[in-house]
Design a protein around this nucleic acid. Structure first.
Lengths: 350, 350
DNA sequence: TGTTGGCACTCAGGTGAGCCGAGTGCTAAT
DNA sequence: ATTAGCACTCGGCTCACCTGAGTGCCAACA
């Protein structure tokens, strides 16, 4: 079922107008704004057809039409043309991202911040997926009796650390020994191939009493595992309250309530990424619209995410969450540009 | 100007009722709920007097009275009696805080989380003020050419680190040398006594070419300074949307908008703490009500904070932000208990 | 077959009148 | 100092009404 040309134009015009005005758009106002060379009655027929096909819907009988989720979907998939950013916008974004910080995590958050400022929506950033990155260094640093710091240096220039408890009477030299042994045997291994067993065998030719050893190794292991946990960072939640789309308080509460469970959101974004990966259609961005989003309270939102890249199969996501009634073209072009700049900066860091 | 006994009771009853019902309270309903041994007309006289004195006010002519900021102030200062928590509540809180994590930062966030859950309000936690804490260890760890990790171990068991850039051709041994020299000379110094000069003199008897040295020392210095920066963590913002007090969307937006600038909030809490310190009346908690709060959009809120303690004059704050129409007694008792448990746990960590 | 003008119908939202009731201030009596 | 009584206020609710933008459908036309 293909839409004929005029119907496409009609759908496009409806989305554009509705996004711009936040009012259901009727056949008459459609004629006024766009110069279709036909009468309003003809458009009414087209609109009836579009409604039958599920692209648009009526809030109530005697109102204009608004795009349905499917209508937005059609719009982003084949109707819209992506904006190019003005020089000024590009500069604005560039100056915020370029050369600001030396650390990947900060850089990524910074990019997300820029994105939120540029779009006026909520921005999100996911920490890099480190499963596939490999260990470049691991150090156990004695802090005080019973307490040590595990420092991991991963490929892609990421550093993680964690304070752990260790047996009280372990000595500084013993720790150095363990540290050295682990490092020697684990360096170069991808994180997802490191198991408790790997860690234990890595340290088996030290002369530390095994009771002591076990606990230290276990803590080192959990530190490693913890390093590849995904975390998400959201910013600009309050901006959603400014949109009439969420003026009903109930919706606003549901939305912010769901977003406050960052673990859930992170899981969802992760799943989006995975699905995109298996489906093979790895676009430069991913979009989920309205009900397509399997999170409570996000029916009126859209998710748009992109992937940033840190080399060595290490990557993560940045994105925005906005009302589904948004200017997709503008948002996507902004996100694309931010992503590009972010990737450039990340490359410089390695 | 002292209130006579009955007027005190009237004010107290008005606050209690208004907090419970969120409706302006009138003379008649006051008689019904509380057994004053006088007529409603008498109460009306009292209420007129209380209004003249600024403790209560009318939303409009023909409505009951609601407490003014000053009324709440009088209430918390001299009228309310602090609840004691039920066994069950105590256990609930205790089980969430006790023995959960090994790291101070996590523990504090966790306490704040518990507080938000227990009260249903926004909770806040400030990072410990480390200016007065002293350096127990400082290590420079070579990560890769051009990049190093500065690890600081402070008294009170806090560990901070930062990735810094260093000259590319500096060697591992040179780093160790610098690291050793700094550590030897700076250990035991309070953070606020460490300046760039201190750091530079600490390393002056190494044999590293001074051009290289300078950059490393500078980076080490910024890492140290960065360690005592205050940071704040807010949680549960979305919960405020559930209160009728913020149902007007405009207010909600102002509130969340202001809170999204965490630097500003941190600065404010810090200032509160300082003022309490100089005024000398160091209570177990601090309260700011309504307009007393010098932050935009918080006119309808109250801040309640307490101080946690990590020994060695290192301390920070936890607290809640809720509608000023809140059950102060219950909130304060909860916060007090959480604070107590947090302090106990922090003590165990050192 | 696609397009058009015309017409009856629908319905959300705004307006204004009217009523209700909780609450007040004031006054005169106790 | 307290109380009973009374006139007055005013926010909020309900109801009826109107308006206007928009629709669906039909008959006519190219």
């Amino acid at each position: 079922m293909e839409l004929d040309d005029r119907k496409k134009r009609v759908l496009q015009a409806i989305v554009d107008d509705y996004v711009a005005t936040n009012e259901p758009v009727g056949s008459k106002s459609l004629i006024e704004r766009h110069n279709f060379q036909v009468s309003s009655a003809t458009l009414r027929n087209d609109m009836a057809e579009l409604e039958r096909l599920g692209f648009i819907e009526k809030p109530h009988t005697s109102a204009g039409r608004i795009p349905s989720d499917r209508g937005y979907r059609e719009y982003v998939d084949s109707l819209m043309k992506i904006d190019t950013l003005s020089q000024k916008e590009q500069q604005e974004i560039e100056s915020r991202i370029a050369g600001t910080v030396d650390e990947a995590t900060e850089l990524i958050k910074n990019a997300a911040h820029t994105l939120s400022e540029a779009t006026g929506f909520i921005s999100l950033s996911m920490s890099p997926r480190l499963r596939k990155s490999f260990l470049k260094q691991i150090k156990l640093l004695m802090i005080e009796p019973g307490k040590a710091l595990v420092v991991l240096v991963l490929s892609a220039g990421v550093v993680k650390d964690k304070i752990v408890r260790i047996p009280n009477f372990i000595t500084d030299e013993q720790m150095m020994q363990i540290s050295g042994a682990i490092e020697k045997n684990l360096t170069g291994k991808p994180l997802d191939e490191i198991t408790l067993v790997t860690v234990e065998t890595a340290a088996k030719d030290t002369e530390i009493p095994s009771a002591l050893l076990r606990q230290v190794l276990y803590e080192a292991y959990t530190a490693i595992k913890q390093a590849d946990q995904l975390s998400i960072y959201l910013e600009g939640e309050h901006k959603m309250l400014a949109f009439p789309d969420f003026s009903s308080m109930g919706r606003a509460r549901d939305l912010l309530g769901t977003l406050s469970d960052s673990g859930m959101v992170a899981g969802y974004v992760n799943e989006m990424e995975n699905q995109a990966a298996v489906s093979g259609k790895k676009d430069s961005y991913m979009i989920r619209i309205g009900q397509e989003i399997a999170l409570e309270g996000l029916d009126d939102c859209s998710f748009i995410t992109a992937t940033y890249d840190m080399g060595d199969t290490v990557f993560g996501n940045i994105g925005v969450i906005g009302p589904k009634r948004m200017d997709y073209s503008s948002v996507i072009s902004k996100m694309d540009f931010v992503k590009k700049k972010l990737n450039e900066e990340l490359k410089k860091l390695t």
